[in-house]
Computed example of a mutant assay.
Amino acid sequence: MTLHANEIPVDETLVRSLLKAQRAEWADLPLSPAGAGTDNTMFRLGDDLLVRLPRTADTGHSVRKEQQWLPRLAPLLTHPIPEPVHAGTPTNAFPLAWSVYRWIDGAEAGPDTVRDWAAFGADLATVVREFHRIDLMGATRADGLSWYRGGSLGPCDPWVGRALDDCRTTMGSELDVDALEQLWQAALALPEPSGTHVWLHGDLKPTNLLVREGKLHAVIDFGGLSVGFPDAEHSTLWDLPPQARQAYWDNMNLDDMTWARARAWAIAVGVSGISYYWRTFPAFVTECRARLQAILTDAAAR
């Protein structure tokens, strides 16, 4: 499945060639697809490893970022995160950095895997609070750790406006885009976020939260790792049921302005996802649409 015009094709043959050239001891292990997101393609390698390859040069920098910082962050976190075990180097066949990680057993968070959504929301709040309290270790947004979601909403307004217009065209009356735009504009009018910068995962949606025995077990995919204001970190809560969202709110003790800005970030990601992936990634469009509808339902109830 090709999602981007500048995407580098990847298949099992390519992955085996990379392994033969750089980690020959793994080259004959069983290899099978293990999922694909908007930025990376994954293959399970044997029982204990995962190969992760960026789709485009634009997202390739995230690989080196993970290789540099995840080993330093992991000892400071209670829950498991990916452990890089090989830093793949570019080749003629695949001109980007790539990685091999330890495999983490678990299933994506969802109605068939989570036992108690309120407890899950509280556990997620604990993970986020713990992550945000980690010392920056000298890292700043100028060190390759500057992602738009850790900054201010204002600079995003032009492309969010275009995405809202695209949603009006594609979704028609199926989605109240006008109401979403009102929520977006209301957040833009709020004071800028204040306080110190923190570590941000950047994309704590259910597919990046692994569950074991009904409970949150691990956090994966740190491609959006950055340093910045925490507001956008909370934006994926609208991908979770209301019970989880409320428990998270209560445990984080978030103020109304932070919540409104987090909701605006969720709108930005949702409408841009529909706009960009409308023809190429229907499952992701469905995910974005569900998020936006949850925002509208939640806003109407408050």
Rank of each mutant, 00 (worst) to 15 (best):
A109Q: 05
R168A: 12
H201F: 07
A118I: 11
D176L: 11
Q185M: 12
L240T: 06
D143A: 10
Q293P: 00
A189W: 09
P230I: 07
R72V: 08
L175I: 14
D105N: 11
P71E: 14
A300F: 01
H86D: 08
I8A: 00
A262V: 09
R245C: 05
L77E: 15
E7Y: 07
E25D: 15
Q293T: 02
R141E: 15
S173Q: 15
T236Y: 09
V63Q: 03
L164G: 06
G106E: 09
D298R: 00
P71R: 12
Y277S: 10
D58A: 11
D47G: 06
E7L: 06
P84M: 14
I134T: 13
Y276K: 12
S146D: 15
V198H: 03
V198W: 02
M252C: 12
G110V: 09
A125Q: 11
A187N: 09
A97D: 13
R64M: 04
A264W: 10
L96F: 11
H61D: 05
R55V: 00
V211P: 01
F120P: 03
P90H: 09
L292P: 01
P242Q: 07
Q182D: 15
A244P: 03
V269P: 06
D255L: 03
D250E: 11
C156R: 04
A187P: 06
S152G: 11
Q293Y: 00
H234K: 08
I220T: 02
